[in-house]
Simulated scan of single mutants.
Amino acid sequence: MTPPTGPRRHLASSPFKPDPEPTIEIYEIDDMVSHDSYGMGRVIQVEAAAVTVDFRSQTVRIPSPFYKMSKL
């Protein structure tokens, strides 16, 4: 049996609250960020569904939602 993909469906008769919608951080050019895998970096490009971050050793395009990244 394969695990289900996507968000779980909430039944109206369930006594449990539905999972909250994740809030997606909004980044701007020159924002300093911290990434769990790459370390500290600076946002150099912002797109609708991704940001490009310069981590000095490499430049990485990170798609939304930004689970492993936070603004400093």
Rank of each mutant, 00 (worst) to 15 (best):
M1L: 13
M1S: 14
T2A: 07
P3K: 14
P3I: 09
P3A: 11
P3R: 13
P3N: 14
T5F: 10
T5H: 09
T5P: 01
G6Q: 06
P7Y: 07
P7F: 08
R8F: 10
R8G: 09
R8D: 07
R9C: 04
R9N: 08
H10D: 04
A12C: 02
A12V: 12
S13W: 06
S14Q: 01
F16L: 09
K17T: 02
D19H: 04
D19W: 03
P20W: 04
E21Q: 11
E21I: 13
P22F: 04
P22V: 03
P22S: 04
T23S: 11
E25H: 05
E25T: 15
E25Y: 01
E25S: 14
I26W: 01
Y27A: 04
Y27W: 06
Y27F: 15
E28G: 09
D30R: 13
D31T: 05
D31I: 05
D31H: 14
D31A: 05
V33G: 02
V33R: 00
H35T: 06
H35D: 15
Y38N: 11
Y38T: 02
G39W: 05
G39K: 05
G39S: 08
M40H: 10
M40T: 12
M40F: 08
G41S: 11
V43P: 04
I44N: 06
I44H: 04
Q45I: 03
Q45G: 05
V46C: 09
E47D: 15
E47Q: 11
A48D: 14
A48M: 03
A48S: 14
A48L: 08
A49P: 02
A50K: 02
A50W: 01
V51Q: 04
V51W: 01
V51F: 02
V51S: 02
T52V: 15
V53T: 06
V53C: 06
D54R: 05
F55L: 07
R56Q: 09
R56F: 08
S57P: 00
S57H: 13
S57W: 08
Q58Y: 01
Q58M: 15
T59D: 00
V60T: 09
V60H: 02
V60D: 01
R61H: 01
P63D: 14
P63K: 15
S64C: 06
S64G: 03
S64K: 14
S64E: 10
P65C: 10
F66T: 03
F66L: 13
Y67S: 09
Y67E: 10
K68A: 13
S70T: 11
S70F: 09
K71E: 04
L72D: 09
L72S: 08
L72K: 11
L72M: 12
